[in-house]
Each structure stands twice: as structure tokens, then as C-alpha cells.
Design a protein around this nucleic acid. Structure first.
Lengths: 121, 121
DNA sequence: CACATTGTGTGACGGCTGTCACACGGAGTC
DNA sequence: GACTCCGTGTGACAGCCGTCACACAATGTG
């Protein structure tokens, strides 16, 4: 299972992680300024992310609602490990210090990440 | 100027950084086990890297020789900054500690990187 | 009900990437 | 000189990505 979202996908995922499931339109409104693209692009990207298993779309309610299917910490852990391994060729466990200055992570999430990073190699 | 080599390109660049300019065939022989692809692929990738300005090919000598045109430290600094900024949303200077466990970098290179990373935002 | 807005299905297209294959000319070998 | 191997120019093709547009159904509003 590949779990490395590309840049636009990561933007959408971050919004979902931060604010939970929401209708496609809302997600678009939140991310459009950053992505600077049209509603069609948001929809298509979500479609592709669905195929990859990154999100799921629930059509039970009126405007279909999107939710993340992969967790923030495991995704970031994968991406970090990929980057450090491939680019910097770090073999051992990653230094948690690399993440403490991230504005993305709460203390609990940092703890979780640390656990994931140690055991992932 | 974009300066973010994709994965196969980075493999070739690393070999060039480590061993200096060399004929295409030698570069292929060194990287093929890791890339697991054919000589044609190496050649085509080098061609594309030439277009991007990542390497240059000198045809003055008999078997044309490839050399890196972008430096290891600036390239890694760009990639690291891109990753930390986009994925982890780190705004300030990156912690040098993130690099000390890399098996790629000498002490002087670490110093250089640290300088680049501090002033790059 | 007629119209305007929103949601959804689907198709498209050019660029980059990964990955070759083919063909041809020069160089070394018998 | 004929054959073989290597270097080089070039073309190809499918898959993913960024980015829409079009068409139609559903829904709200006067």
C-alpha cells in the first residue's frame, strides 16, 4: 500500500485532519486559496485519492462528505522515513528533535510519531 | 530554477558527487544495481538531467563524461527545506540535528549545510 | 412552474516520469 | 575487409499529475 500523498493531496489531507470530515465544497473553499485552482481540480483530486484509499466519500447524507482514511501521524511518519532514508540516507531511528519545531503536531501526536519512527525500520 | 531531482536522478547525482565525473557507462554500472533498470534508462535520465541543468556531458574526450552541475550541499539544503516546509510546516531555521545522523555528509559539509539552512528562508 | 444555483459523472489534454527498443556509425579483432 | 561490440541519436509508450470543461440531475426560490 503506497501511502505518500503528492503535494496537492497533502494539502487536502491536512485540512481534513485539522477539521474532520466535511462536504467537498467546504474542503474546496478551505484549500482553494492555497492550491489556487478550480473546484473541478479539487473534485478530481479527491476522486483519485479515493482510488488510492487516502479518503472516503460518504454519500449517505445530502452533500457527499469526505473524510480522511489515513491517519496524520502514520502518514507523516511514512513520509519522513522515506525522505530521511532516500535523501539523507539515515538508517537508524529518526531524531524526534526533527519534528518538535513543526507547527503541525500536538504533544501527544509528537509522542505517537516518536513511537512510529523508532519502530519503523 | 527548479532544483529538486526526482528519485532516480538523485541516485545518479549521489554517485557523481561521491566519485566525480565519469563516463556514462561507468555511472550506469555503479547505479544499475540500485535502480534496477537498463542502460537506455540511465542514458535517457541523464539526457533529461542535462536539459534541467543538473549535469553536463563533456564530449571532448572519447567516451563522453558526465559531471554534476549542482552541488551536493545546496541540493540537499533545497530538498530539506522543501520537505520541512511543505510537509511538516516548519518555518524557522531547521535544526542541524536533523542531519547529523546522515551517513552522507562530512563534518565540513554539515557546517556548510547548517549555514545554508539558516539563511534560506 | 420556470429559473438559478449546486452537486455529480465523465472526459480531456499536455507535461513529467519510468522505462525501454531500434538503428546507425566508429573502433577493435582476426 | 568482415564481424562484433560499444557509444550515441532518437523515438516510443503507458502511467501519473495538474488542471480544467462540459453536461446533466437535483434542489432551492420567486
Amino acid at each position: 500500500m503506497k501511502i505518500t500523498p503528492n503535494p496537492p493531496e497533502l494539502v487536502l489531507l491536512k485540512a481534513l485532519w485539522a477539521r474532520g470530515a466535511m462536504p467537498v465544497r467546504s474542503l474546496h473553499d478551505i484549500c482553494a486559496p492555497e492550491l489556487n485552482w478550480s473546484f473541478s481540480s479539487t473534485r478530481k483530486t479527491i476522486e483519485r485519492m479515493t482510488d488510492k484509499g487516502f479518503v472516503s466519500v460518504s454519500t449517505t447524507s445530502k452533500p457527499a462528505s469526505v473524510s480522511a482514511r489515513i491517519s496524520k501521524t502514520t502518514t507523516l511518519a511514512h513520509m519522513a522515513r522515506e525522505f530521511f532514508g532516500r535523501v539523507l540516507e539515515v538508517d537508524g531511528p529518526l531524531p524526534a528533535s526533527a519534528f518538535t519545531c513543526s507547527t503541525l503536531l500536538s504533544d501527544e501526536e509528537l509522542d505517537e510519531l516518536e513511537g512510529l519512527l523508532g519502530g519503523l525500520y
